[in-house]
Amino acid sequence: MTTPPFEPATEHDIAVASAQLGRPVRNVLGIAARCVCGNPTVVATAPRLADGTPFPTLYYLSHPAATAAMSDLEADHVMVELQDALGDDETSAAYHAAHAAYLADRGQFGEVPEISGISAGGMPVRVKCLHALAAHSLAAGPGVNPIGDLALERGDWSPTVCECVDYAIEP
């Protein structure tokens, strides 16, 4: 079993991610990707929330600028184009592998029968949520999720440029 690519969240990380989302974050396992300034970009969430709800989205995009960029792509119907990319055998095979990698990462935190075989973002055969796919790409790194990588390339946000606001979180 491998270790997922994230580090434990600090109290400050939890406060910032909550401010980013405009609500308290739930059942955070760690920070899966960070802005170049150090703020959370992707939080890793437990596969079963404290209230018992199954939660398939291990990698959750929290950074407002990244979230806005993915929302803009979805509004521009880029998902149709990215869905068409799955017609390429190599891209389709890589997307299936991304699905398996996602399930393996999440499976390290317990099996949840209600979401067995379900990853995120429509994997392995659909493009459903660019936020989830971009979050997976940011967490796992380039080359793991081809559709998430393409979404990040197409969006007007870059993980190499800080667009954070001052969250005024007390240390």
Rank of each mutant, 00 (worst) to 15 (best):
Ala9Ser: 08
His77Tyr: 08
Thr2His: 06
Leu103Glu: 13
Ala15Glu: 04
Ile147Pro: 06
Pro47Ser: 13
Gly107Lys: 12
Glu81Ala: 12
Ser158His: 02
Cys162His: 11
Gly122Lys: 10
Thr53Arg: 14
Ala32Pro: 10
Phe55Lys: 01
Tyr95Thr: 01
Val127Lys: 11
Pro113Leu: 09
Pro5Phe: 04
Met1Val: 02
Glu153Ala: 14
Leu61His: 10
Arg106Val: 01
Asp149Val: 13
Lys128Ser: 10
Cys35Trp: 06
Val28Phe: 13
Arg34Ile: 04
Asp105Ala: 09
Val78Glu: 15
Ala17Asp: 06
Leu103Thr: 00
Asp166Cys: 03
Asp88Gln: 06
Ile14Phe: 12
Arg48Ser: 07
Ala132Thr: 06
Gly155Gln: 13
Val161Leu: 13
Ala85Val: 04
Gly148Asn: 10
Gly110Met: 09
Pro5Arg: 05
Gly110Val: 04
Ala98Leu: 04
Ala100Ile: 00
Thr2Trp: 02
Cys164Phe: 00
Thr160Ala: 14
Pro142Leu: 07
Thr67Ser: 14
Gln20Lys: 05
Gly22Thr: 11
Asp105Gly: 06
Glu11Cys: 00
Ala139Lys: 08
Leu103Met: 13
Ala104Trp: 09
Asp13Ile: 01
Glu114Tyr: 08
Ala97Gly: 08
Arg34Asn: 03
Cys35Lys: 13
Glu81Arg: 15
Ala75Arg: 15
Thr2Glu: 10
Leu58Gly: 05
Asn39Arg: 13
Gln20Ala: 09
Thr67Met: 11
Ala135His: 04
Thr10Glu: 09
Ser116Asn: 08
Arg106Leu: 06
Glu11Thr: 13
Gly155Ser: 15
Ile31Phe: 05
Ile169Ser: 07
Cys35Gln: 05
Pro142Gly: 05
Leu133Tyr: 01
Pro142Ala: 15
Gly52Gln: 03
Lys128His: 01
Arg48His: 07
Ala68Asp: 13
His96Tyr: 00
Pro5Val: 03
Val165Gly: 00
Gly30Asn: 01
Val25Gln: 14
Cys162Met: 01
Met79Leu: 14
Asp72Asn: 03
Glu153Leu: 11
Gly143Pro: 14
Phe109Gly: 05
His77Asn: 14
Glu114Val: 01
Leu138His: 08
Leu103His: 11
His131Gly: 09
Val125Glu: 14
Arg106Ala: 14
Gly121Tyr: 02
Ala120Asp: 00
Ala94Gly: 05
Ala139Cys: 08
Glu90Tyr: 03
Thr45Met: 09
Phe55His: 15
Ser71Thr: 10
Ala17Tyr: 11
